[in-house]
Nucleic acid binder design. Sequence first.
DNA 1: ACCTGAACACCGTTCAAGT
DNA 2: ACCTGAACACCGTTCAAGT
Lengths: 217, 217
Amino acid sequence: LGSKADLSLALRKKPVQERSAATFRAICEATIQVLLAGNFERLTTTRVAERAGVSVGTLYQYFPNKNALLMAVLTEHLGSVVEAVEQTCLLQRGRRVSAMVEAVCDSYIDAKLNRLDESRALYRPTAELGCEAVVLIATNRACAAIEKMLATASDALFRDLPMISKVLVSALIGPMQAVMDMGAPPGLVRKLRKHLVALCFGYLNEIRLHSKSSARS
Amino acid sequence: LGSKADLSLALRKKPVQERSAATFRAICEATIQVLLAGNFERLTTTRVAERAGVSVGTLYQYFPNKNALLMAVLTEHLGSVVEAVEQTCLLQRGRRVSAMVEAVCDSYIDAKLNRLDESRALYRPTAELGCEAVVLIATNRACAAIEKMLATASDALFRDLPMISKVLVSALIGPMQAVMDMGAPPGLVRKLRKHLVALCFGYLNEIRLHSKSSARS
DNA sequence: ACCTGAACACCGTTCAAGT
DNA sequence: ACCTGAACACCGTTCAAGT
């Protein structure tokens, strides 16, 4: 037995054959089931395998460790959210800043709400080792999309768009998460929409290149 | 042996006597040491006890479980950050919004940077069970402080300050965390300062009650 | 080629026994 | 009053053996 934990998240087998693909999916779905059922601590390789109807050994044929199992599911989840944002960004190219901000905020919120349970179950262990890497990939994709969109704005010019997009993305995540932790009641979500738009729009208005500078400080 | 985990975070013994207080502190310090030394997975009750020069049993006289140990350290860390922000908020009462925003952002960033290593080591397991509760207490304190300060602003009026302060706090955490995950290089920190100010100021400018409304959408 | 499940190492937690 | 450390339950992971 190696003393160092295998931290690689790469899967051991891609669904090479017909039957094994079903097993693979069953394990992934069982993971979400177990996660939704109980606390994060209830997530046990044995329990997942049991729920998937296979033995532990089978699980370890496809995933190198428990974390990889969790990350696979998280990757899938984040991917679907990012995809929604990317779509919106494409559609908004050439529009005015206010339209862009509203559309992106809406699509982000909606994508999250579509999978509220999954998202809440998944964000508990988000800060685990190896998870940051996965989250970073997702946020980088979102940043790239937002960056390119903003570069095409018809009514504003920006300096340092890489930084601006990173601030926007990371600033949006916190309030969204907070609202979801409170169960995302509709009234609060409505308020959140308005405030996130104000946050983004106010920020962009503040750091955009002004022709006439508004004195401050 | 009870099958349910003891999730209570309450300490079992407050430093009742002279000697035991030293033991208590030793365990807390050992926890940070172990955390700073290796990965989060290296944090083991046995290892912490060993480093503190006591046996595992002694550790469990003071902390009901491993999580409580972690939370005690995190609480201390977050408390010091919040305290800095609270101080600044008091000092800024009655000032203009721009001054408030700059001062609060600075104090938040500085408080975090003062304990950069600790903060980075601590935020790995932040999303663990029971941690959210502790984080919530800290953010609620920060929100209350910011809310009261904003209510005294000389140049602006706000509606729904509870919501506004919550958005501000949770929006600031993300970008800050991202920069710290990158090691917080000075150049990036400088940029962060500017961008967080712009984020807060732009947002507040956007949602404050206007006398003359600037047309949007 | 894929699956099984007993076996191993290790960790959180306890408790009878020590001083 | 405080500490010890062997003991217990349980979990992640493996691997020889099965089909």
